[in-house]
């Protein structure tokens, strides 16, 4: 038996069409000339992209999301990467238990985490603030960074670091001159995914957003709940293109299946 066979390939092809359908439709719809969601559109134009450019709330939400995602990415790497290094290279007792402790937040649905954060942040007046949203997103991104970078560090051959040590490099010099340069592709991929995770995070943001501070997905949810016109499709195209860029970068650097899988 060679390859997948005709029956299986056709079945898979059908499912692929289904997977891609919503994304393809959104892209087509973004260029619609109609006033409402009609498919196929009666005509094509760029009017919804122009409308998007003039839509204040969505643009300021987009800007807020970019700010939050940037801060979240930097902070998550700053505290996640050292932890991953320790978990991957350290040989202290209780390491496995600690690894489980750090990855635990990935197991809990964001619905529960979001609720817990809402209850915690409200008396602290952190809801609907940039610090609150950043901290909220980090409950997802920090464990993600730790998981991805622990794998990246553990797959480095120990001998290369040992070699640097025998050549006279102090421990922190080994990290700087050998370990970090060698995981750079993984680090960049991790940063890209981290940004995307924060940028797309919806449920925790819905719990923590107020009228003053709403991230882009939150603003989009509100918009879709209120009306259905192709404006959101135009915005979606922007997001899809951004996602594709991240996917291509990550795929080139480390392979997407390895990065998002376990």
């Amino acid at each position: 038996m060679n390859g997948a066979g005709r029956v299986l390939s056709s079945l898979a092809g059908l499912v692929y069409a289904l997977i891609l359908a919503p994304i393809a439709i959104v892209v087509a719809l973004a260029f619609s000339a109609d006033n409402f969601i009609l498919f196929p559109p009666s005509g094509y134009s760029l009017r919804w992209f122009r409308a998007l450019g003039a839509h204040g709330p969505l643009l300021s939400a987009l800007w807020l999301s970019v700010q939050i995602a940037s801060v979240v990415t930097v902070l998550s790497l700053v505290i996640g990467v050292p932890a991953a290094l320790a978990l991957a290279k350290g040989r202290f007792s209780g390491r496995d238990a600690l690894t489980n402790f750090f990855l635990a937040p990935l197991l809990l649905p964001t619905l529960i985490t979001g609720l817990a954060l809402l209850l915690f942040f409200t008396p602290l007046r952190l809801t609907a603030t940039l610090p609150g949203l950043v901290l909220g997103h980090m409950t997802v991104t920090v464990p993600f960074v730790i998981r991805m970078m622990t794998t990246a560090f553990s797959t480095l051959p120990d001998d290369i670091e040992a070699a640097a040590a025998t050549l006279g490099a102090e421990p922190w010099r080994v990290v700087r001159r050998v370990t970090l340069p060698l995981v750079t592709p993984g680090l960049i991929a991790c940063a890209c995914l981290c940004f995307l995770l924060s940028f797309d995070e919806t449920v925790i943001s819905l719990f923590l957003s107020g009228p003053r501070a709403a991230t882009l997905p939150v603003e989009m949810v509100r918009y879709v709940e209120g009306r259905t016109d192709p404006l959101v499709a135009a915005l979606s195209v922007v997001l899809i293109v951004a996602t594709l860029i991240v996917v291509i970068i990550v795929e080139r650097l480390v392979g997407i299946a390895r990065a998002v899988g376990k």
């Binding site: 051959p157 001998d159 290369i160 640097a164 040590a165 025998t166 050549l167």
Partner: peptide
């Protein structure tokens, strides 16, 4: 610690630094 011993170690896997040129590898120490 290893970095203070001044012992030359040739690893079975060679353990060359893949991100550095031959000259930088040799000059590392």
């Amino acid at each position: 610690p290893a970095h203070k011993r001044n012992m030359g170690y040739v690893f079975q896997s060679y353990a060359l630094f893949p991100h550095l040129s031959v000259a930088r590898n040799v000059g590392f120490g």
